[in-house]
Design a protein around this nucleic acid. Structure first.
Lengths: 340, 340
DNA sequence: CTGAAAGCGCTTACAG
DNA sequence: CTGAAAGCGCTTACAG
């Protein structure tokens, strides 16, 4: 048989005390005598009392749950951020409801509404790639705090945890320049996600600062950031007369695809073509040659997002904000741009 | 200002109707006239009414939330299973609270209790590596259904979603035998997790069936299933006089570490030493040579776990069960055991 | 130090 | 077809 759970009422009845007293004793309220408190706690243990969070949440208008919305949970960098979120929420006694949009803005809107229904205390979200209508987010912001992370947009008036994409990309390209590369290509996303665009800006900035001419034929667009797309693109590049001597990929996956195909054609990396990725995924030290890439502190991003959310929950004012919290990235030089 | 949300009471007041009627109209109860229903719905929309799931859950003793407990969310196979869980729960209108144990049994016990407090309808759990005390699970089973997946244990009387570990390992070793390997080593976990042990059984079974002598010196234990451990072990193996000519690793990560080190010493794979992994992670086609491995249907496992949970929630009887649902695996042959 | 009472937002058996 | 009332388990202002 499924056992049912004891309630305050039952404890009260057993002990000939009022429900209020039981509640206070269990919550260590100062006004309860030591004796009563102990008696109550003992009986609670004896009955295997399990407090009903649901009733508490309902009563207190606070669930201690944060809603987390991401495009896809299997994306490896997302996983690392989620780990940061879980570690931090666990530390402070919160639970997380995690949902996926699979990059579908309609689903995103639906989830946002469901989060409101479920009464989460606040929301952490990494935007879907195709989100253009910001009104669902704005509507939620009228009631609950939202923190954006990873896939952000500066068009939304709420706190964002970001990496300095421009500076990171700049340092990647600068590195390629420093090892003497002349024809530096970039592989970015055609759809132009926020991150891809920022990294492109960093690319342009580096070229500009080092007085490299901007060569449109070195700018390559792909449909998505997969290994496959990286491979396809490289096949294409391989057919060109004028090839690049370095390729900056806006994600590690693209870079892995690029390297796989360069290896297939026995191109010498980095001598003939150097490759840089972005995000220091686990792939970077599995591929040969090991990938030079940008390290982003994923766990820290997750933890910061939770901390920031808690801060805003403590505020009395509304949740609109334009705060942007930046975490530092680091260029990690490996074999794909450097030979010992 | 933070906007507050309309309630049934407010709609009722505005419309001069009773709260009961509003509730029924919004829930499409048959006993409400078309006219009233429409009037109510219109007013609800006008007021931007958001139903309060918390109050509903509290009232109905049902949260439509499933609790999910895993050792680590960043483990890639876990991520794939979680995706299956999320897709299925989303499809049927459930939400998931996801927590990590980081392989700490104490944390696992704590989370189990918290799940009870939060009032989840049921629990999906992949056991921590060091769980030995099963009583916390048994206690939860008295109240809520639990489905075990991936890291399971046949000592717990509840439904389990498993892959046929023994058969899968058998087929891997059989494959190594079929390509003519004589000294087939296994790399397994010293702590002896359920999965590692089952795979070891499959290894023994294959050797036995093909009348291969059991050579204790070909059985290697590692502390954990990381790439690093695979590398360390291979360094050790490399120092041995008598080397294996094939290595069956109970996880892909171990296999990746093994291959990296074999490559470092220019060992010819598979001619000198063949390598097989387990789980068909994304690494398998990034490493050179591409890894022969066992494909496990992760998403299917996740979906099945949810479906099974829902079935048990529908049951009137208790949640103790010894049902074990098996999903099929498949050996994927790649370069690490096969040359074109 | 303890208790009686109200109420969080909702659903549902009962009555008409 | 609609309403009044009870109650899910808890907390807290008020009273003593």
């Amino acid at each position: 048989m499924k056992k049912s759970t004891a309630t305050l009422k039952q404890i009260a009845a057993n002990l000939q005390l009022s429900v209020s007293t039981i509640s206070r004793a269990l919550n260590n309220n100062a006004n309860i005598s030591e004796v009563t408190r102990n008696k109550v706690k003992k009986e609670a243990t004896r009955l295997n009392y399990i407090p009903c969070s649901m009733a508490k949440s309902f009563r207190n208008r606070r669930t201690n749950i944060v809603g987390v919305i991401v495009p896809s949970i299997t994306h490896s960098f997302t996983g690392i951020i989620l780990k940061g979120i879980l570690l931090e929420t666990d530390r402070i006694g919160y639970k997380t409801i995690i949902c996926e949009t699979n990059d579908n803005p309609e689903k995103e809107k639906e989830l946002l509404n469901q989060m409101l229904e479920f009464g989460v205390d606040g929301i952490l979200i990494s935007l879907s790639k195709f989100t253009t209508d910001l009104s669902p987010l704005l509507k939620v912001l009228e009631k609950k705090p939202i923190i954006l992370f990873d896939k952000v947009s500066d068009k939304i008036p709420c706190t964002q945890i970001v990496t300095n994409e421009v500076a990171a990309a700049f340092s990647a390209v600068e590195h390629l320049i420093s090892i003497g590369k002349k024809r530096i290509a970039i592989v970015k996303e055609k759809q132009g996600s926020f991150n891809s665009e920022k990294r492109f800006v960093g690319y342009l900035k580096a070229l500009d600062q080092y007085r490299y001419p901007l060569d449109e034929t070195l700018i390559f667009d792909v449909l998505n950031m997969s290994i496959d797309e990286g491979e396809l693109l490289t096949e294409y590049i391989f057919g060109l007369k004028e090839k690049p001597d370095a390729i900056f990929c806006v994600t590690d996956c693209l870079a892995i695809g690029v390297i796989k195909t360069l290896n297939k054609y026995n191109v010498k990396i980095p001598d003939e073509i150097a490759v840089v990725g972005f995000s220091n995924s686990n792939y970077s030290t599995v591929i040969k040659p090991n990938l030079t890439t940008i390290k982003q502190p994923g766990q820290q991003i997750g933890k910061l997002a939770v901390k920031q959310l808690m801060e805003e929950l403590g505020n009395d004012n509304d949740f609109f904000s334009s705060k942007s919290i930046e975490v530092n990235t680091k260029l990690i030089v490996r074999e794909s741009t450097f030979v010992l």
